[in-house]
Every structure is written in structure tokens, then in C-alpha cells.
Amino acid sequence: MENTAQRAGMGAIGQDPFKNGVLAVQTLRNNIMASTLLATTAITLSSLIGIFANNDSDTKLVFGNKTSLNSSIKRLSISLCFLVAFLCNVQSIRYYAHVSFLITSPALKGKMDFIDYVAKTLSRGSHSWSLGLRAFYVSIPLVLWIYGPIPMFTCCCLTLFILYFLDTTNQITRDLHIKSFKLEETEDTEAA
């Protein structure tokens, strides 16, 4: 549904890029800023975990296996998770910046193949941003894994429960999207 909505939005911008272009560029700027913030946060947290990897203290809050090999595996997995989040967010910045240049191009008006290319590039940026955000979601149970398997398992169950409600749509949302797309199609056929 998101890709269809983005494609419809690109079609609307393609009809009148000068009227709708400013709003599109501002939206893309906001997405670039959000991706930049997440990328900066991810690389900062990855660096902090690298610093804490050298500080191997024995605490009573950790349950389960406390060997240094296990500790290293935990910190490495968290660091890799944050690095994946960083790379995905940097990739989304790249796509969004590319779209922000393409969307203001005068060649956009009336050329459906160009509009489809811009919509695909926007979808790639959105997909990269979503993957980066998912890496942050995965990092939360991994951070709690430092304190043992019970906090990690509890957080995994809670994260799955929350993501189920965030990632699924209900019938009302689907009906709204379908009606809006049908309304746009009838307006386009009437205009032609």
C-alpha cells in the first residue's frame, strides 16, 4: 500500500511539478533529516559499545553465562546491528537526495516512465529507511541480552507484540486506501 501511495503521489507531482514540488522536496528533506539522525545515533552507539568492550567488569546484574567469549559475541552482535542500521540509513539518505533532485526536474511533467523511475527510487529509499529502523528494533533485545536470556526473551516477546500492531493494517485502513485510489482513477479518466 505504501508503494502504491508513493506512486500515486509521484503521479500527482508529475501532473504539476511546480505546484506540488515544494511540498515534495520539504517532505524529502524531513526524511533525509530523520535518516541522518538515525545514522548518527547508530554509529555513535556502535562506537560506545566498542569502548565498553574494553571495559570488562563483573556485575551481579548479569544472569546466565558470564564468560568473556560470550560477552564478546553479545557486543559484536549489537555492534553489527547498529552498523547495519547505519548503512541502511545512509543508503536511504542517498536515495532521498537523488529523488529530491529528480522530483524538481522539468522532465517530470507528463512522462510516465520518468515518474515511475522516481517512484521506484523513492520506494527504495523508504525501504532502506524501514530496514534501518528494523535494525534499531532488533538492537533493543540484543542490548538486554547483555543482562541475560530472560530480559532478552521478554523484550523479544514485547517487541513482536508491538510490531504486530505497528506493521499490520486493519480493514478500515485498507478501505480508505482503496477508496482514495479509485477516486483518483475516476478523476483521471474524467479529465482525459
Rank of each mutant, 00 (worst) to 15 (best):
G9C: 07
T59R: 15
L166F: 15
K120H: 13
M1G: 09
T41E: 00
W145R: 10
A8F: 00
P149K: 07
F161Y: 08
P151H: 02
P151S: 00
L166I: 11
L133W: 02
K66H: 10
I103C: 07
L102K: 05
K19H: 11
H127F: 02
T104N: 14
G11S: 02
S139A: 10
I178Q: 00
T27D: 00
V62N: 04
R134C: 01
L163M: 09
A97K: 15
S128N: 12
G125N: 13
T40N: 04
D188L: 02
S72L: 04
I103R: 01
S77E: 14
I162G: 08
I73H: 10
F86Y: 09
L142P: 03
L45T: 03
S126N: 15
I146M: 07
G64Y: 05
L83F: 07
G125R: 05
A12P: 01
I93H: 03
I78G: 07
A135H: 04
I49Y: 04
S100V: 03
W129L: 10
Y147H: 09
K109P: 05
A191G: 12
K179A: 14
T67W: 03
P106K: 06
N31V: 03
M10G: 06
Q26R: 10
I115F: 06
T186L: 01
L176W: 11
D58Q: 12
S126M: 06
T104H: 09
Q91S: 08
Q15F: 14
G148Q: 00
L76R: 08
F181L: 12
I43S: 01
K74A: 13
